[in-house]
Every structure is written in structure tokens, then in C-alpha cells.
Design a protein around this nucleic acid. Structure first.
Lengths: 169, 169
DNA sequence: CACTAACTGGACCGAAGCAGTCCTGATTGC
DNA sequence: GCAATCAGGACTGCTTCGGTCCAGTTAGTG
């Protein structure tokens, strides 16, 4: 599981394409240059605009323009713009108070650390990191395989404020 | 997106339940004590057995037994047992060489670091971590931008019974 | 030795969410 | 005024998942 929506993948392609030029670009133009069907590109662009990742210019000679540099766009933002808030469980986004049985619900809140970890991992990888080939591993590897007994209380996140990663290594 | 399969959530419940006793437990018994429908429990247990997380004893007086302690079972293993290999993109698990257009495929391999980060985050959280209420938050949540609208960044006050589920009722 | 309890493996069906398309309206440059 | 472009929705086909059921196999028990 943990499947990423295909639209999100398209969104990354579109954003990178958008970063390749300085002027505004039209959705038909992006569709032509990326090979993605035009309606799909338009749909992605709309979601991206709603998410604040790109700005739009209406009317003739209009188009889309990147709002931020690729290195300032974490993938979490892209996913959030396309797929909505990042959460693994269905419980967190809606029916928090009602579950099927009382016996299985004590586990509900327990997914929070997992959600948090995922969210964090998605926040520290930017589109610039996905664009370049060499990516500095965000997490060092403390536990190989399944030997991780507990979460290290003192984590290294102090060095990463929120968004971008260093250039490369 | 990033939706976690409901079966995986059930699997966690079942595994925790399994850890609550030392002998073997039958799937009808687990179903009765957790409230999950018996066929579903059986299905989950089958996947868990295939994944090597639990061992099964066939025949009369048979049942299932936990293969490892909860603290040695990362959620990644549970997800892998239920949902298959952890990967966000559909490209990685099958049609790696063929994509729709050449323009969007340069992004294909770029999801690898994201997959890796997710996988890593999932590997360092075990069922024992999900079981206890007070979880040492490995990553503090910067919670800027669109972090968590409803999830408290710090460890929430434990309002749910921290220990395992009560006995069969 | 027969019976029963329990797991094994598969097939099956309905429901839900997603991918993709299309249409109509609003906006703006020429 | 016209044309190009974005905005926002509705709609449909499809894939996948959730859940159930069945026949078969194994092993303990009377």
C-alpha cells in the first residue's frame, strides 16, 4: 500500500517543467512538452494553484508560474495539494469519535507517531532533491532490518528546520 | 492520500491482542475479543503468517502465536505483510521500463529517496511504540505550513488505556 | 478409528475511491 | 468584440480494496 496518487506524480513533473522557464506557461503547452493529456494537466494545475504552489494568470496570454523555487517545495506540499492532508488512517480525517468496535479503537491514536514520522519525512525532501540525482540521505540509519526496539528520544531534527535539504554530498 | 489499508490497522490490533496471551489463540477467539469479524481476522492472520510475524498451529487445539515480541515488530513489517512491499509509486513494483511518455519518466527514479525515507520512518516505529501511550516523539513537529491541523505536535495526554486490550469478554 | 476443531488457500462480489474527460462560465489581452 | 486561457464544477469508467464464503488439510480427542 502507501500508494501515491498518479496525479501527484504528474504534479511533480509539471512543477519541474514549470521551473524550467521564467515566464508563464499555459497548460496546453505543458501538456505538449510533458506528454501528459491536457485535461489532466489542467486539473493538476488547478489543484496546485489552490495549494498555493503556483500562481495563475487568467485571460489571453495567461498561464501558470511557479510561486516558489523547487528547493522550497517539499513533496509534502505537493501531496497535500493534490491528495489532501497527509494521513495514513481514515480515522484522523473524519470520524474520530465513532469506530466499529470499542476493542479495536484503542489503537486509533497510536498511528499518530507513524503519521508524524511520514509527514516529517515528506517535509524534508523537496522537489529539488527529486530533480537532482544525488540525494543526501535525510535519515541516518540507526536500525537495520527490524532491530529498532524503541524510538530514539533525542533525534537529530535540530539541524533541519523544516523544508530544504543541503545541496548534495 | 497515503492511505493505509484498513486491514493493516486490523493487523495491528490482532497482533497486540496476540501478545496479550502466551498460548496459542484461535481466530474466532481473537475475533470475539476484538470485535473484528471472524473472516476478516482469519484473512489478516493468514497474511501475517505468510509474512512470518505469527506462527500457526493447525488442527484441533490449534491457533496462532506471536513469533516475535511487539517491540521487535516494526510497522513496516506489518504493512509489508498485509499490503505488500512499501512503495509510493506504482512504477517501482512492476513496469519499471515502460511508461506512457518519455517526458514524465525522468521523474520515476526520483521517488526512490521518498520511498526510502518513508520506509525508514516505518522501520523505526514498532508495535510496542504504538501500544504505549507515552511515545518519545522521535521527530518534533515543526508544524509550520500545513503540518497537522488536528494532530497535536507534542505527545498528547493519554486518554486511552495504555496497556493492551482487556481479556476476552 | 472417527469426529471435530482449527488453519490453508483460493475465488467471489459489492463498495469506494481514483483517473481522466468534458462542459460552462469568468477573465483578460489584442 | 473576439479569442485565448483559467476556474470550477459534474460526470463516467475503472481499478482496487473490504469483506465473505467455500472446499480442503491437519491434528487432537473420545
Amino acid at each position: 500500500m502507501l500508494r501515491l496518487s498518479k496525479l501527484t506524480d504528474y504534479a511533480v513533473v509539471v512543477l519541474v517543467r514549470l521551473a524550467g522557464a521564467q515566464g508563464v506557461q499555459t497548460s496546453p503547452g505543458i501538456a505538449a512538452s510533458t506528454g501528459i493529456p491536457e485535461p489532466t494537466v489542467a486539473k493538476v494545475l488547478k489543484s496546485l494553484t489552490s495549494g498555493g504552489l503556483v500562481s495563475s494568470q487568467r485571460g489571453a496570454r495567461g498561464g501558470y508560474r511557479l510561486q516558489r523555487g523547487l528547493e522550497e517545495i517539499p513533496v509534502a506540499d505537493v501531496i497535500a495539494a493534490i491528495d489532501g492532508p497527509i494521513a495514513l488512517t481514515a480515522c484522523v480525517d473524519g470520524s474520530t469519535s465513532e469506530c466499529e468496535a470499542q476493542g479495536l479503537c484503542p489503537m486509533r491514536g497510536r498511528w499518530d507517531p507513524v503519521n508524524d514520522a511520514i509527514r516529517h519525512a515528506l517535509h524534508r525532501i523537496t522537489l529539488a532533491d527529486m530533480q537532482v540525482a544525488s540525494i543526501p540521505v535525510a535519515f541516518r540509519t540507526p536500525s537495520q532490518g527490524l532491530a529498532g526496539p524503541q524510538l530514539p528520544p533525542a533525534a537529530p531534527p535540530a539541524r533541519v528546520p523544516s523544508d530544504r535539504l543541503p545541496a548534495a554530498e
